[in-house]
Computed example of a mutant assay.
Amino acid sequence: MTRRRLTAADMGHLCTGAMFVACTIDHESALQYRDMTLGLIELNGEGPLLVSADDLDPAAMTTSTGFVNRGLMFSEMIPIGDEFETALNLLQGRLGVPLQGIFPLAAASVNAMVPVSVALQTGLPLVDADPMGRVFPLVSQTTLALAGMSAGPIALTGPTGETAVVDVVAPARAERIVRALASELGGWAATASYPVTAAVLQEHGVIGSISRLIEIGQILDSAQHTQAKYAQLTTLLGMRKVIRARVTDVEGLSRPSVPGLPDRPSSATLVDEAQGRIVRLEIQNEILMMLVDGAIQAVVPDVITMVRPEDASVASLDDLWVGNKLDLISFPAAPQWYSPEGRALVEPMAMHVVGHVRGGRAR
């Protein structure tokens, strides 16, 4: 069971862990939300209350909060700060019952930081769980969807203050509608979705995901040598450093395109100069697949990320510039994603990026 007040130090570690788990282009948004949250903690005199789902009444209604974007990164049009409160109020009105806890739509990147500041603004407890355990590009790719839970009703607030409430059940349909609305609302939307009881979240969510990000950040933010950090991450995550390689080619970074999908695929090629191995990364919002000499080393749902070898600081997709040397790392996602149903929902074929992966990952 978890019940404690998060501190300013926790915020820094949470942000580091959130960026490590999601190797994306836009780390700036997570940093902005970290700073916003630190300001709120200073103003309030205390941090948000972190609780386990089983700390709440089993019938207590909870909901996820998170950004959904379509063509605009949040750092390009910074939120005013009340967008999620508005979405939560709209959702409560539609449900007809009060919300008693919030959790991240994805425990990674900026969406891991959002509910922390929202918890401070609203006084709601932050539940130590999420429905992804990492980040996936589609709203429909959640463990709650795997369990047959409805994604809606979903409340949205755009950067101009316009709002909408969508009464949608099927998560796949919710993905298309919410993504289209995000575009119409101004490029992104603050959303409250997947309203479920604490009992359902405890049974079908990824439990302890916020605490895990803080632990990751504590390791990476420490003054230890890079190899010592890797050893601790291996114990915590089952992590393995796949290869240290230098970038030799980048075929464009992901930007929005086809409706219903967040962006089109792109690729990067790196070379392990010590052994001459060729590494290829397939990217759509984040790294979906890593191949070494043509053999698959890691593929979604595995988490694939990058750090800078000199100090194990978190790298982003912006670090994929020709000549740069990076450590490429992978580790397993939540167990739910390795079921046949989980793989069918999140494997690259489901995201229209690369063909079906046959025979699993190479070892």
Results as ranks from 00 to 15, higher is better:
residue 139 V to L: 15
residue 266 S to P: 03
residue 236 L to R: 07
residue 235 T to E: 15
residue 278 I to K: 11
residue 118 V to Y: 12
residue 232 Q to D: 13
residue 254 S to I: 10
residue 80 I to C: 15
residue 9 A to K: 14
residue 114 V to C: 06
residue 277 R to C: 12
residue 343 R to E: 11
residue 171 P to H: 08
residue 55 D to Y: 10
residue 173 R to G: 06
residue 121 Q to W: 00
residue 126 L to N: 08
residue 255 R to T: 15
residue 29 S to P: 09
residue 47 G to R: 00
residue 120 L to C: 09
residue 184 E to F: 07
residue 253 L to I: 08
residue 199 A to W: 03
residue 7 T to I: 02
residue 39 G to F: 06
residue 129 A to N: 02
residue 61 M to F: 00
residue 122 T to M: 03
residue 255 R to K: 12
residue 134 R to A: 07
residue 98 P to S: 02
residue 120 L to F: 07
residue 154 I to G: 06
residue 272 D to Y: 04
residue 314 V to N: 05
residue 326 L to C: 04
residue 355 G to E: 05
residue 192 A to K: 06
residue 131 P to D: 12
residue 105 L to V: 12
residue 360 G to Y: 13
residue 3 R to Y: 09
residue 214 I to Y: 00
residue 249 D to K: 13
residue 158 G to F: 12
residue 151 A to I: 08
residue 261 L to V: 05
residue 57 D to E: 14
residue 1 M to Y: 11
residue 40 L to F: 08
residue 88 L to K: 07
residue 327 D to Q: 11
residue 43 L to P: 08
residue 332 P to W: 02
residue 287 I to T: 03
residue 175 E to I: 07
residue 215 E to A: 14
residue 239 M to F: 06
residue 29 S to D: 10
residue 246 R to C: 10
residue 253 L to N: 01
residue 18 A to T: 10
residue 300 V to I: 12
residue 253 L to M: 10
residue 315 A to L: 07
residue 349 M to A: 15
residue 256 P to D: 03
residue 363 R to L: 13
residue 202 Q to H: 15
residue 80 I to E: 15
residue 342 G to E: 00
residue 167 D to Y: 08
residue 259 P to M: 02
residue 247 V to H: 02
residue 340 P to V: 01
